[in-house]
Design a protein around this nucleic acid. Structure first.
Lengths: 193, 193
DNA sequence: ATTATCTATAGATCTATAGATAATGC
DNA sequence: ATTATCTATAGATCTATAGATAATGC
């Protein structure tokens, strides 16, 4: 195995897309190899730890990408909670849904618990923590009330926005971003002083 | 196959529990049979359509149960949106999470699309429609504002409450019901006139 | 010479069925 | 006599590896 390799990178990207879209069990190593037009046996030349090792590597990276993007958004919009949440919504709705429940009830059953714990923690850092941070800043500015359990509220906001993903195309009003905007408006209004 | 049978019913119940908990692909017919201490080949004596037929039958029933429970709650608490939502939250948090995303991106890939469409529609009727109904009633009473897209708001409320399921035990504040109560309070406040 | 890819195949697991044996209903 | 359960096994699929062949780097 080589750490740096064009082919390896393509395997990782294909795997990330499929694992995130369908979950661990609905993806075979053949599915992944097929995406980039190679035989699945080639995958084992580039990846350590087989399918489950691949999942762990790829999901770790996936969460890191979300983490970076979210913190950039938080810092680029420091003066407006609404702006922060709108930008987050835009990011989430232009990427695949993050199905925490599926990960913990299905995917994590197939990998070592130690790895599951790491990915779980990363998911938390990449989703709820940035929202909590934005909420805390906004309450310091007096933009919203202080709330004793911002973690709980952050979870609600995250899931509410993610829910827009599961609206079928034919029921979308204007755009998914618009729907998220409506949800964010209600949430912020409910937190106003 | 016999429609009415003690053993058949036990197979169905075991299957419902496992499919809902883990999703289609993370459950084998052996897992299901093991729960009730029978060989998996016995399952085929009671069930038509094999594993996928079993899934369809069991998930249809699952959604119908939610549907009935939710409408009972709506009708037993007609004068208070808060009470309706609190009761719904209590129901959802004492049952397994309803992972619509997992169903549509993983489970439904393994069953005929026609069946997937039916279950999808049932899930909609069992979750969002009751909330929409409660919201419409509340706006008629003047309890909350009229909002042009109650479907969107209902989706947000449903997902926000469901999100409490994915909070690990050690991070639960008071109880999961209490956390749902906080979320409901913010949502209702955001919808007040 | 080293790295990447493919062919072939082992071994495990999974769904499903045939057919023998056991349990139950009349 | 009918219904339910188990044993045994077929056939498909999946992960993983060994080893031959092709491509690439120096």
């Amino acid at each position: 195995m080589t750490e740096k390799s064009e082919a390896r990178e393509r395997f990782l990207e294909a795997a990330e897309k499929l694992f995130v879209e369908r979950g661990y069990n609905a993806v075979t190593v053949k599915d992944i190899a097929k995406v980039i037009g190679k035989d699945h046996s080639s995958l084992y030349h580039h990846i350590n730890g087989g399918k489950s090792g691949l999942y762990v590597e790829v999901m770790t990276r996936h969460m890191q990408r979300h983490h970076e993007a979210l913190w950039d958004i938080v810092q680029d919009n420091e003066q407006s909670l609404r702006q922060q949440l709108l930008q987050m919504a835009d990011w989430w709705l232009t990427h695949d849904p993050i199905d925490i429940i599926r990960m913990s009830t299905s995917d994590f059953r197939e990998i070592p618990q130690q790895d599951a714990d790491i990915i779980s923690e990363q998911a938390h850092e990449a989703t709820l923590v940035p929202i909590m941070h934005a909420l805390a800043q906004a309450s310091e500015r007096g933009e919203i009330m202080t709330h004793p359990h911002f973690g709980n509220i952050a979870g609600a906001i995250f899931s509410a926005i993610q829910s827009v993903h599961s609206v079928p195309d034919e029921y979308v009003i204007n755009s998914r971003q618009f729907m998220a905007e409506e949800i964010i408006a209600v949430m912020i209004r409910g937190l106003k002083l």
